[in-house]
Write a protein that binds this DNA or RNA. Structure first.
Lengths: 231, 231
DNA sequence: TCAAAAGTGTTTTACCTACACCCATGA
DNA sequence: TCATGGGTGTAGGTAAAACACTTTTGA
């Protein structure tokens, strides 16, 4: 009868699927790997968990080291644990996702030399990825596509002030289908989680659209009620 | 620049939250531990993953070894990776859940001696559990509560033939609220996934209810459509 | 005949869907 | 003045919610 753990040669890793929205396209953050295995390949930002850090902490640290991004709230969505998924040994990886605001930053500065660079890449234009990262991305994409259909999380991806048309485009890109403009607006405004601003779009060569802000207070309230309602 | 993995002393484990329904109560499967740590405590069926098996395979094997249950389809639902969750070292655990039919079996026969016995325990009557298993159970319960509200998975828990009232009771137990009988029946029958049998309940001292069977073919069809519809 | 659960319909309300035209603006 | 997207309402269908009484059966 054992009283200590066996010393398997196994480690955990974290992989991050970070979604952004820019120029009308849904993008994810990729790094160019600077180390073996899969040196020079594109990959999701991901690395090994240290022995003395929780997986949530590891996710935050790893994303920072490989992309320079800080304070990004991520959620775990799936754990990949097939035997042969890492060429150097047994690595079970916990995948996290986040939806964030690009703020015009296209290229990021990795802190660690494991990543040569970190770049936003359109999901319609993804290269072949290292390890089983394509599979991980797909599952992460499923996750947000599913989530957005019952929770209005798209705001996370937009600039602070946005037009309803921009919001609709984002939904269309994620759900991969056209939506009706009138119905979309009606529904969004009915939620009561948008604050209409006294401001309009600038620099467009057509009628400027009203800008809106996301009302996080009301959103939280609404969402809590939905949850406690059990549906 | 490393080309091999560091040899951390870390392992993964699997924990299983197996739901059953019996005597009008929702139950989960617990084992009485026969080894340190937490010897003699109640715990979820769970153990370490071997180096050469996928986590899905491990889940199946571990459930069998600790409870004698075979061929149970489980889904992964969350991974727990806090540093101090296991007293003997770093163990990240992947939690799986399943909903199964009890078939009158109350106590099961563990194959491994790690479990002294395996028993169904009502979720209203859970003892203090080993490790962070109470937390894992809660998350698993949230999972099925959430899932049942958009997918009629409750059949998995019922005997092959059941009455609508039994089905409704099960929903009420999982959702923890009363449902309207007429609306419930209307909705369930409208799904078209119940086969009405030419048989009635027996041995009751009141009007016998019609028995129904779950129509898995129609369910699969319906569910695929829902999925492909993107909502 | 009583107790206990089976079984059954209608109305109201909310939401989703489909659908087309005028408006404001900058170039 | 034209091109471009901004902005708006209504009608029909479907699903959910509220609500109470009669029927059947065995003890």
């Amino acid at each position: 009868m054992e009283t200590v753990l066996p010393k398997f040669e196994s480690v955990f890793s974290i992989d991050c699927v970070i979604f952004g929205f820019d120029e009308g396209e849904l993008k994810i953050l990729l790094i160019e790997r600077n180390v073996e295995p899969f040196k020079d390949w594109w990959a999701l930002p991901g690395y090994l968990v240290e022995q003395d850090e929780s997986i949530d902490d590891a996710a935050e640290r790893i994303l920072y080291e490989l992309t320079g991004l800080r304070d990004i709230y991520m959620d775990q969505f799936y754990t990949f644990g097939d035997v042969g998924r890492h060429p150097q040994g047994r690595v079970v990886t916990v995948a996290y996702y986040a939806m964030i605001r690009l703020n015009g930053i296209k290229e990021l500065k990795p802190v660690s030399s494991y990543a040569r660079r970190a770049v936003w890449v359109s999901i319609n234009d993804l290269p072949k990825l290292a390890f089983d990262h394509s599979k991980i991305f797909e599952k992460g994409f499923d996750k947000i596509r599913n989530k957005i259909s019952y929770q209005p999380i798209a705001f996370e991806l937009l600039p602070e002030k946005f037009t309803l048309t921009q919001l609709q485009h984002l939904y269309e890109v994620i759900l991969n289908k056209k939506l009706d403009k009138r119905n979309f607006r009606k529904k969004m405004l009915n939620y009561g989680i948008l604050k209409e601003l006294d401001e309009k779009q600038k620099g467009v060569s057509y009628r400027a659209a009203k800008l809106y802000k996301f009302d996080r207070r009301k959103y939280t309230k609404l969402f809590q009620n939905e949850l406690s309602f059990g549906k």
